[in-house]
Design a protein around this nucleic acid. Structure first.
Length: 466
RNA sequence: GCCCUUAUCGUCUAGCCCGGUCAGGACAUCUCCCUUUCACGGAGGUAACUUGAGUUCGAAUCUCAAUAAGGGCGCCA
């Protein structure tokens, strides 16, 4: 049994797509599951771009998701170089080999791969995808024997190529199909795990393997990730399509990774949220699904929330505090102890870190924006202004804002006026925070302090007249 | 147009290989309980085998077809 070698071969384009991330993840998982080797190879044949910056996007995103590679950029390996831009001489040599044995030829300045089989010249008409124009084109159809793709996920797939294809462009650049196969052979890749969009192209690749006299690797074509709504696969313009978006929105990387695993694969028991070690132990290519999966932002958010809740207090504080600074709510002058108290009070109620600033804004800003929806909801069964009117003088008379003192006041008022105790909570919460939800009311009052609470209740009442 | 792949609740899916289940779980949604506030939590509800043939005593499960969805047919990767 030879050692498993998987690879992820991204092209540095400046962003890291969620589909690419999952492909990388499945390659990584399978290598880790089998104790094999995970290779990272950069397909940067398009040298015109700023590859250093674009490369960093990929490397950083991979690391952010907790993926490491055994061979590739920055770590090296025995089968390098791992940048296609540095392997051009090697490709030339392999193309030479194909030409020497008659499997490649030059035409129109480009180099074509020659299929084996009977040939006939045919004319086909088809609509151009972008312009919609009908194009007539003459080409040489080859009746090549079908190629068998033995796919771990799809099973046996048969497909025949019917025309020669370009392997080196007229500008001298080798094309994807060629370099992909040549590198996979050179790097001794045993399992090619990639998106199903490559399944049809696999017949080209197998033809190349055969021409080189090499046994093809095992293939595993994983399902695609589709848009939440509408048709087609996730494109970079779709919300949630880019890994950088999750970084910016302060998703927890382990949560993103966990959710990604759930798209096209399911753990054996009913537990969906599980540590990566357990996923590695369970993951197997044979269990990967065949049908495409639709991306669901809400479930992603749920998984993230679960990971957030499971975070130890210190870790949460460590993550949350800088986010408040980023949002401009706190700065060097803000009392550190106060920040800690706010975070401690709100931690268990926070659903996501990107909404954390708006969730605690009122602790740091004096002007409170009243949530109209919350106001309307409360007003349905209660008169928030009347309740605050009643509370205002009483709050002013309170000696302190300890929980017991505040509770006693609520109790006294509700008994005197024959109003439900809870009818005081929501109006007061709205007046001091502007929101319909949040942490324990008593905690809010205690942290804000008497002065601010009184001022905000007054401001709330003043807002009624306008 | 040609080729390849796929098809279970709104979404992710279990079950399919080796026919007999009240077709299970999760997200979302709704109801109730807990909490005299917020949320978590707990209990429950609504909700699916694409259609049509065939094989069979019996089909989500096996076969075929139709339909639908996705992908590929570039001197993109």
């Amino acid at each position: 049994m030879t050692e498993v070698r998987t690879r992820f071969a991204p092209s540095p384009t400046g962003f890291f797509h969620i589909g690419s991330a999952r492909t990388a993840l499945f390659n990584w998982l399978y290598a880790r599951h089998t104790g094999g080797t995970f290779v990272l190879r950069i397909e940067d044949t398009d040298t015109a771009r700023n590859t250093k910056e674009f490369l960093d996007v990929i490397l950083e995103s991979m690391r952010w998701l907790g993926m490491d590679w055994d061979e590739g950029p920055e770590v090296g390996g025995d089968y390098g170089p791992y940048f296609q831009s540095q392997r051009k001489d090697f490709y030339k040599q392999k193309v030479r080999e194909l030409m020497d044995c008659g499997r490649a030829y030059e035409k129109d300045g480009a180099i074509w791969f020659r299929l084996e089989g009977e040939r006939e010249t045919v004319t086909e008409t088809y609509k151009d995808g972008s312009t919609g124009e009908t194009i007539c084109k003459e080409f040489e159809r080859v009746h090549a024997a079908p190629v068998v793709i033995d796919d771990i996920i799809r099973g046996r797939v048969e497909r025949a190529e019917d025309r020669d294809f370009v392997i080196v462009r007229s500008n001298g650049e080798p094309v994807f199909h060629l370099v992909n196969v040549v590198d996979d052979i050179a790097m001794k890749i045993t399992h090619v795990i990639r998106g199903e969009d490559h399944l049809s192209n696999t017949s080209k690749h197998i033809e190349l393997y055969k021409a080189f006299g090499v046994e093809p690797p095992k293939f595993a074509h994983i399902p695609l990730i589709l848009k939440t709504e509408g048709s087609g696969k996730m494109s970079k313009r779709d919300r949630g399509a880019l890994i950088e978006e999750y970084q910016q929105r302060h998703f927890l990387p382990a949560a993103v990774r966990n959710y990604l695993c759930l798209l096209g694969w399911t753990p054996k028991d009913d537990k969906e949220i599980l540590p990566i070690e357990e996923i590695i132990a369970q993951f197997d290519l044979a269990d990967v699904h065949q049908a495409n999966a639709r991306f669901d932002e809400r479930k992603m958010a749920f998984v993230n929330q679960e990971y957030l809740r499971a975070l130890p207090d210190e870790s949460f504080t460590w993550l949350a505090a800088p986010i408040l600074g980023e949002a401009g709510l706190v700065n060097d002058k803000t009392d550190e102890d106060y920040i800690q108290k706010v975070i401690a009070l709100t931690k268990e109620k926070v659903a996501a870190l990107d909404t954390f600033p708006s969730f605690v804004r009122y602790f740091f800003e004096d002007s409170v924006a009243i949530d109209e929806k919350a106001l309307a909801k409360i007003s349905k069964k209660n008169d928030p202004y009347a309740r605050c009117e009643e509370l205002l003088p009483e709050l002013a008379n309170l000696p302190d804002f300890e929980d017991a003192t505040v509770d006693a006041l609520f109790g006294k008022l509700s008994a005197e006026r024959g109003i439900k105790l809870s009818d005081y909570y929501a109006p007061l919460r709205l007046a001091v925070s502007g929101l319909g939800g949040g942490p324990h009311l008593q905690g809010i009052l205690r942290l804000l302090g008497k002065e601010k609470v009184i001022a905000r209740v007054k401001a709330f009442l003043a807002g009624k007249k306008s």
